[in-house]
Amino acid sequence: MTDRPRSAPMPAALRAGRPPRHPALAHRCPWCGAAENARCTTRSGRTRTVRLDPCPARLAAWATATAVCPTCQTAPGYPCHDNGIPLPDTSPVHNARYTEAEEPAA
């Protein structure tokens, strides 16, 4: 009998056959209406998007729900603002809040 070389242990995420999921998928998507832990779809809900990342509205909702904004000092659950004026819909969250939300997840 021959001894085969032992291989390194496989990480659990690879063994399961699925890549790690983005933490924003734990929230319902306000734009496309995708359920929690489901990938984002088109606006009509008929087709799933090709990309694995959540859509920008879901990322903004996740950052708003989980992180304190270092720019405007708002608590989790409250939208970002500039001196009391709400941010426009094109950028509903400060960029610093995204990085703050990603730190505990990493």
Rank of each mutant, 00 (worst) to 15 (best):
A101S: 10
C40W: 03
R48G: 07
E36G: 00
P76T: 02
P76R: 01
R46Q: 12
R58G: 08
E102H: 07
P86Q: 05
H94K: 04
R15N: 08
T90E: 15
H27K: 04
R18H: 14
P79I: 08
A24G: 11
Q73A: 15
T47D: 10
M10F: 00
A16G: 06
T90S: 14
A65E: 12
A26Y: 00
T66F: 09
P104H: 08
V68K: 13
R28C: 02
R18S: 12
T66Y: 12
P19D: 10
A101E: 02
P92W: 00
T64D: 00
P5W: 02
A106L: 09
T49K: 13
P88S: 03
D3M: 03
S44N: 14
P54W: 03
C40R: 04
C55F: 01
P79N: 04
A12F: 04
M10S: 09
A105I: 05
P11A: 13
H22W: 01
G33T: 11
Y98H: 15
R51T: 15
P9E: 12
G17L: 09
C69N: 09
R15Q: 13
G17K: 04
P70R: 07
A63C: 13
E100I: 10
P56K: 03
L87W: 00
P92A: 08
P11Q: 08
C32Y: 11
R28N: 00
C72Y: 00
N37E: 15
P79E: 05
R18W: 11
R21K: 08
T41E: 02
P88V: 00
T49I: 13
L87H: 02
T64E: 03
T42I: 01
A67D: 02
R21E: 14
D53P: 01
P9H: 03
V50A: 12
W31L: 12
P5M: 01
L14G: 10
C29P: 07
V50P: 00
A96Q: 13
Y78S: 14
R15V: 13
M10E: 11
R43E: 13
N95A: 14
A75H: 09
W62L: 05
A13N: 12
C69Q: 09
A13V: 15
A34S: 15
R58Q: 07
E36Q: 09
R39C: 06
V68H: 14
M1G: 15
A38Y: 10
P11I: 01
I85P: 02
R21G: 09
C29M: 09
C29Q: 06
T42F: 02
A96R: 05
R28S: 07
R58T: 06
H81T: 10
R39H: 06
T74E: 15
D82M: 03
A60C: 04
P30H: 10
H94G: 08
G33H: 14
C29T: 12
T41L: 03
P23Y: 00
C40I: 11
L14Q: 14
T66A: 10
E103F: 12
Q73P: 01
R58P: 04
P86L: 06
P86D: 07
M1I: 09
A57T: 04
A26H: 02
S91C: 06
R21H: 09
E36K: 12
G33F: 14
S44I: 02
P56Q: 07
E36T: 12
T41A: 03
G77M: 05
S44M: 05
G17E: 11
H81E: 05
T42E: 12
T90R: 10
